[in-house]
């Protein structure tokens, strides 16, 4: 079996200690939480950190889903299974459970964390699209304090985020807004596979019209996950098949998929359109029913 190269191991017992360790050990140190992105990379020896800082002991500090102050706050060490099971998230944002049901598989979800998923920044990862569509922000902490970064700015490119060498993601904040609906659509080749293409959509109604919209795609763009032109095409119009079709077409136009084992680029571009359209339909139904 493939095994990681040697490293030094340290456990952090608090966020501050984790940050202090990162500062002390330098750029060859990596945090590990669920480990389901990092450890496979280490087994392939694509990642060979000299120091691994285990932040699982921070579970009591960073595993939470709390509704407060017009926000749902999700701790970075919240496991996928907790996100999937959360009634608070399911009530406010159906997109979250729909996406989570399609992320990896149950044992992986028992370990993998929200923070790990976002910080890996795989272009085919799902939660980045979900949170981008919902207009969430991330909270990044370093020794100098915390800063708040939007999902668009957080996600700097494939496997690159706004989190600095001696910083860590500690929280995701999702705004609670009324008259909204959301949905996630994903095509994959097999259970547990990464997305061939996926689309996350959220809509908020202002009277009879769409007041705000979030559309974010996964696996069809190396960088940039939100489709702002598609969002704009919906705003100020009543939710309708025409509007959805137009927005979906723009989302497809604006994406830049690559041909690979999951399918040719034209197929993925088609999926961007098809899945966005389907998600918009379902999100609108939910918004109208809310």
């Amino acid at each position: 079996m493939q095994v990681p190269a040697p490293f030094d191991y340290a456990r952090a017992s608090s966020v501050d200690e984790a940050i202090a360790l990162l500062e002390r050990l330098g750029p060859e140190a990596r945090l590990v939480a669920g480990g389901h992105s990092l450890l496979p990379m280490m087994k392939l020896r694509l990642a060979t950190p000299e120091h691994l800082i285990d932040i699982n002991p921070l579970e009591s500090e960073l595993n939470y889903i709390r509704e407060e102050g017009g926000l749902v706050r999700i701790g970075a060490l919240t496991r996928h299974r907790d996100v999937l099971a959360s009634e608070v998230l399911a009530r406010h944002y159906p997109i979250v459970r729909e996406a989570e049901e399609l992320i990896a598989d149950p044992p992986v979800r028992n370990r993998g964390t929200v923070g790990g998923a976002l910080c890996q920044a795989d272009p085919s990862e799902d939660l980045s699209a979900v949170f981008a569509a919902l207009g969430a922000v991330t909270v990044i902490r370093g020794s100098g304090g915390e800063r708040v970064v939007t999902m668009e700015d957080f996600h700097e490119g494939p496997y690159e985020t706004a989190v600095g060498d001696a910083e860590m993601l500690v929280e995701v904040r999702v705004p609670i807004r009324e008259h909204g609906g959301s949905a996630y659509e994903k095509v994959k080749r097999r259970t547990g596979d990464w997305a061939t293409a996926a689309s996350g959509v959220a809509l908020w109604l202002d009277g009879a019209n769409v007041g705000a919209a979030g559309i974010a795609l996964s696996a069809v763009n190396p960088t940039g996950i939100r489709s702002t032109r598609a969002e704009q095409a919906l705003i100020g119009r009543p939710p309708s098949e025409e509007a959805f079709a137009e927005a979906a077409a723009l989302a497809a136009e604006d994406c830049n998929p690559a041909t690979d084992q999951r399918g040719p680029a034209d197929y993925k571009r088609h999926l961007a359109q098809e899945l966005t359209h389907r998600a918009l339909r379902r999100a609108a139904e939910r918004a109208l029913a809310s």
Partner: peptide
């Protein structure tokens, strides 16, 4: 291009 179970797909209980 199919050197692991990430890319050499075999059926799970769901398929």
């Amino acid at each position: 291009l199919s050197g692991s179970f990430m890319d050499y797909l075999v059926p799970s209980s769901m398929e």
